[in-house]
Design a binder for these strands. Structure first.
Lengths: 379, 379
DNA sequence: CTGACCGTTTTGATCGATCAAATTCTTCTG
DNA sequence: CAGAAGAATTTGATCGATCAAAACGGTCAG
């Protein structure tokens, strides 16, 4: 938090008027040719030890930094990933994508990649942007987020030969194109685990609040509940509800569930928004102790002490980059032509347990918040 | 939502193997010289009408798109804005910054600017990144977010001659550097308005829940409350509380306030997190009808029907870009040397009223949610 | 001593655009 | 109709790096 001054390397760069040094400047200073300098940077192995050190010192002394544009122009690649920020996501659940963006920025940086963001109003607009960015060689690979049924973006990108990976499976496609690389989280397994855990804890009638079908992610999650709830079909149907996402919606549906003659003794929801609504409903109905589980482990869930299924975004991002660039490489791999190597990755989420599956909700506020991340935030 | 195929211009670009056309290709096709093509793109005014049309047609036919790297190399500017995504913000309030990022991406796009994001672990790390990005001429201007007391970043950037604008005032500086361009929202006025509104509605004892001092934004907001609450100092002190940000914290403090012999009849908070906590406290204490106002108008506030002070992010972003690039220009202005033109902009927020200042909280869930933005969101 | 061979370094060309200056084409004046 | 002034267009150089191939220096077998 303290210790200002010299961040980065601290060479004597005065104001900012004098131009940045170039390879030629470094070459002159180290008494070698441009190319040798270039080699020191890009293939140090082929340069003799002592010259390498000499050049390196010159680089440090002058504070040389390769010009990204020049390099990109010559190499024909930008080492930049494009990412569309979805303008629709304004709900609580949108926070997942934010975390995804963060992680992506972090891990991309570690690989010396840049991340460029853009926003678009719809799928068509998005594709137009992608084309522009790629044709201008601004960006050489894209990450698609939030694929859904009948998503025509993937196919277009494949046809155009634009390298990309989607966070989200190709829902609904009868036979998914093997050239489509994707990473996703197994929501079905996540919900299944959550339900199982609740039953281990003694719950016998675990209800489900999900989204209307068809919804790729939603249907998967619902399936997970159905597999694990241990109820005969009819009873299961009675405890299953579908509604648009949202806190009020969740509250309304949960209220109805709790008013049933054979009321549920636990509720699992397809999102934290729905779960928060359910939490409020339970509280209002005097069932403060009712175990409730949400999905996505958003900040709100942490804040109100709601148990939630957490997506392993670190792994998601790592897998995304690996599919795009390989184990460590910095060069983009084109979309695979055949199905030689695995072109997708399905990751398993894990349940984060909090008060909502442990303690009664009422009572002393002092015990709230389970010490989860709660940082002050200004502006 | 429907209508796939041809996004952008739809020229007959087959696979993606053949290289993109260049100015020379276009020139040849239109029977002019490279430079004329360049002129059509950059200064159409000096090209004769008919040649311009001819060239334009060739551009469209070939699907030509200027190569960003080449242009940047030659012009020495990247038309790219750098933005650090703060890894700390994980609370509910962090959502404001997300909205900011969105708006920035949108408006930057309208000006043909790119936005590049990066993440850093601390201020020093951030500055190191900034240096790297700028020295590599990847980015030519930066937007700083969330400035706070003793923030040494601004001064460093000014010293280094790196063009930037901060979203957030230079807090605490005895005499702010006139070369520092910034945009901020007048939180004091926002809170003042909110309190005034509550008093117009009949509230007589409006309490305040804020953050511990010193906090630039926090102190300003508190000042707004104090100015408008209309209570003598002693009484005001009794109704003022400071705590770290967070839902549980807000709940605890609000519970204490409500237990006072002279309890408040309305509460204004420095954040939606605190306000949500207060809302829960009020509900638990049987004061479901207590008017409560939050700050930042986050999705959560919309979801639970909490009134909140909304920051005009559209204007904030517009002002930011204007300070950086001028009215319409695409070229970055350096940090001003003297204080000739205005170098900052202070915008006024406005109160968004919802159920929490209108109706009782309990009662029928059907009436919840005030129709505010609630969109479904998948993985 | 010659020349093949390997490791290291240098030279010339190139990526795709814009700048600055030179050139050609128009138009208008005396 | 010559010639100047202005408009429109073209030419040559350049931005800063990497690629591809050539040149260099040393070792070593024949």
């Amino acid at each position: 938090m303290a210790a200002p001054s010299h961040p980065g390397t601290s060479e004597p760069k005065g104001a900012n008027v004098e131009r940045m040094p170039t390879v030629d400047d470094v070459a002159r200073a180290a008494n070698v040719s441009r190319q040798t300098v270039s080699n020191v940077l890009n293939s140090p192995a082929i340069v003799r030890e002592d010259t390498r050190l000499r050049v390196q010192r010159a680089i440090d002394d002058l504070g040389y930094r390769p010009n990204a544009s020049a390099r990109r122009l010559r190499t024909q690649r930008s080492a930049t990933i494009g990412l569309r920020l979805d303008p629709l996501r304004d709900g609580i659940s949108g926070a997942v994508l934010d975390r995804f963006v963060h992680k992506l920025a972090e891990q991309a940086d570690a690989r010396d990649l840049r991340v460029m963001i853009f926003s678009a109003s719809g799928h068509d607009d998005e594709l137009a942007h992608i084309r522009r960015l790629r044709d201008g060689s601004d960006v050489d690979a894209f990450v698609l987020i939030g694929t859904d049924h009948g998503d025509e973006r993937s196919q277009w990108l494949i046809d155009q030969g634009v390298p990309f990976v989607s966070f989200g499976r190709p829902w609904g496609a009868p036979s998914p194109d093997p050239r489509h690389r994707w990473v996703d989280v197994d929501g079905r397994a996540g919900v299944r685990d959550a339900v199982t855990r609740l039953r281990e804890r003694g719950a016998q009638r675990v209800a489900w609040i999900g989204w209307p079908s068809p919804s790729g992610t939603g249907d998967e999650r619902a399936a997970g509940w159905r597999e694990a709830c241990g109820l005969p079909p009819a009873a299961a149907d009675a405890l299953s509800r579908a509604t648009e996402d949202g806190v009020p919606e969740g509250r309304a549906v949960a209220t109805a569930l709790l008013a049933l003659p054979e009321a549920p003794d636990a509720i699992v929801c397809a999102s934290d928004s729905l779960a928060l609504g359910a939490l409020m409903a339970a509280q209002a109905a005097g069932h403060g102790e009712l175990p409730i589980v949400g999905f996505d482990n958003t900040p709100v869930a942490a804040a109100v002490g709601l148990s939630s299924v957490d997506q392993p975004l670190d792994e998601v991002v790592a897998a995304t980059l690996e599919l795009l660039f390989g184990e460590r490489g910095g060069a983009v791999r084109p979309n695979p032509n055949s199905n030689e190597e695995p072109t997708h990755r399905l990751l398993v989420p894990r349940l984060v347990e909090r008060r909502s599956t442990h303690l009664p909700l009422d009572g002393n506020p002092g015990a709230l918040g389970s010490g989860d991340h709660n940082r002050k935030e200004s502006s």
